[in-house]
Nucleic acid binder design. Structure first.
Lengths: 335, 335
DNA sequence: TAAACCGTTGCCAACGATGGCAAGGACTGA
DNA sequence: TCAGTCCTTGCCATCGTTGGCAACGGTTTA
């Protein structure tokens, strides 16, 4: 391994001067700088990040902690967004997937501290509440897709209500007056919020909420698409069936499509469908391509890192910012 | 930040002794060790990885480089597998996604060198050949899902031929004698290998290869499921249609299922389907659940790290090992 | 009784980089 | 001509940790 000392020797200057060149210090004669630069190139020298950190206290590292997120297709864009933002600012990302095991999580946080990460992004796969106490107080922490029980940490979460409203309104605006909603039976922000959005949208069109049009799939959620098939089928077999269906997520749309085709109805002519999440390999590949509300994972990851680096506001009125991210509509062909 | 010096002061011993405790050096009296340990706990001291590296030259870091892999749902298991193996040996993973941009890739490798990673795992999304020259010769490198043009680097790739054979045999064993194959028109190891496996399986059952039963989808591959729909439909409308269909990947199965249902045939009673990749959110969720050949991404990631750490053979007869990973069949309900 | 030995401990240099400080040379202005 | 200034450069301490070496007191051995 080449060191700064060797570079100095080869260039016939002191170590201090090489250091100055490395750090773009103006107090170096142009000729000296070029000389050093060429030696650096020639020797293929790269300063040791560890040694640099020792002096400066800047590790340039960001810890990225996930529960089960990284195991799942849904969240990968989040990591990529975070990585890109980090990269743009010369930072590197440490990725650790804890599989939602508290013990692993504690060990992961310790490891990150060992490497003196400048901050931690903690991202969860499902929008949920977490305990703030698991994070060290002395380390900047940013939550994505989750929020602290006492709101003591800045967080970024999707605006589920607005998203649910948008999905429903998309159907209502096309003239659908009987709109079904297939969701999951869980007391979590996502199903709760999207349902609330669904109700708000109906209300804004002066349509009464009809609970016969709403189906909640119970746990376990393994065969989710399959359960959705049953739910949608029962919806379509009602005497006054819905002409538009809002699915809680894109995965469920697989089942919904099957059910609609089973009844020989056409999409979108007879029944329009709107999804949620915009998982590309589902939404863009099903037939017809799915109109869905996007969970802007890439942007959320990007914003998380930017906030962590202090490039965005993280405090408003003395309280950590709780960002609500707008989920845009991705129009394809199912409405 | 607490340092070893402060621990030493609090414990009333020398820095050297604390270091010995930290490194489980036997030359410490039991009482002293306990005393130091309790101070460490009390102060919540963690040794600085950077300082430690400075002395020992062991960064405990592994670079994980991906082309577009991390952007795609297909490959995340690979990353999780690698991470878990690294974790088990006290190593940390640096994740960098280069988006297949050579410039970013070069910069990423440099960054990893800055942090003195002990080795690099380079994983690609599609099985392909890469140039060995982009990697530094002085850094252990392991290729996953790809191989070096001159085979100068150890690599781990799926056994496409055996996988294709397994998929096809699964159909043949159930009595299907007319087996269609829908693939992509690309001169890459995956389509080439799986086709070869398909031919071998037919041959072993004494069935002549009939090119009318094989369809190749041309680029671009955006609407892949949709193109598959057309291909499968044309296959089923042949005078002597296949009763079993092998799809190059699980994504294409979405289109295949649609086409089969369109012709009012049942799966698997009238037409059996086998996929490839075992992408959970597709294979386990379509109806009926898909029997498919698994691309064992988790195991490949795990093996990559183990090989990099020297826990597995990386050289045989003076040549870098080129591992062929067996792809097992995941039986569900489509055959 | 002295030498050898053992277990335990501490001093100090080293890893590779940075930054404060000072010094050398060239130039300016009086 | 000389002091003052500016530009450029080098010396050296420092960051937190580890490991070689030496020293210490106490015990065993010849």
């Amino acid at each position: 391994m080449i060191t700064i000392k060797e570079v100095a020797q080869h260039a016939g200057v002191s170590v201090r001067t090489v250091s100055r060149v490395l750090n773009n210090n103006p107090h170096v004669a142009e000729a000296t700088r070029n000389q050093v630069l060429s030696v650096i190139q020639e020797l293929d020298f790269r300063p040791s990040a560890a040694a640099r950190y020792m002096r400066t206290g800047q590790s340039q590292l960001i810890g990225f902690l996930t529960d089960e997120l990284a195991q799942n297709a849904f969240g990968y864009d989040l990591i990529i967004g975070a990585q890109q933002a980090a990269w743009e600012h010369g930072k590197l990302l440490f990725l650790l997937n804890t599989n939602n095991d508290p013990e692993v999580e504690a060990r992961a946080i310790n490891m990150m501290r060992d490497y003196q990460v400048e901050g931690i992004v903690y991202a969860t796969i499902y929008h949920r509440q977490i305990k703030h106490s698991q994070f060290p107080k002395d380390l900047p922490t940013l939550l994505v897709n989750c929020f602290a029980d006492d709101r003591s940490l800045p967080s970024i979460v999707p605006d589920e209500i607005a998203g649910g409203r948008l999905a429903t309104e998309t159907l209502l605006k096309k003239g659908h007056r009987r709109v079904g909603f297939v969701s999951i039976a869980a007391k979590e922000p996502a199903p709760l919020g999207r349902l609330e959005g669904y109700r708000q949208a109906l209300a804004s069109f002066d349509i009464p909420y009809d609970e016969a049009l709403v189906r909640f799939i119970e746990e376990p959620f393994e065969g989710l698409a399959n359960s959705t098939y049953d739910s949608v089928l029962s919806l379509l077999q009602m005497p006054n069936p819905p002409t538009g269906i809002f699915c809680f997520n894109d995965l469920m749309v697989l089942g919904a499509y099957d059910a609609i085709r089973k009844t020989s109805l056409r999409i979108p002519e007879d029944v329009a469908v709107v999804g949620f999440d915009n998982v590309e390999i589902l939404a863009a590949q099903v037939h017809p391509p799915l109109t869905t509300v996007e969970l802007p994972n890439f942007e959320m990851g990007q914003l998380a890192v930017r906030m962590l680096l202090g490039l965005e506001e993280t405090n408003r009125g003395g309280r950590p910012v709780q960002h609500m991210i707008h989920c845009p509509l991705i129009e394809r062909k199912s409405v």
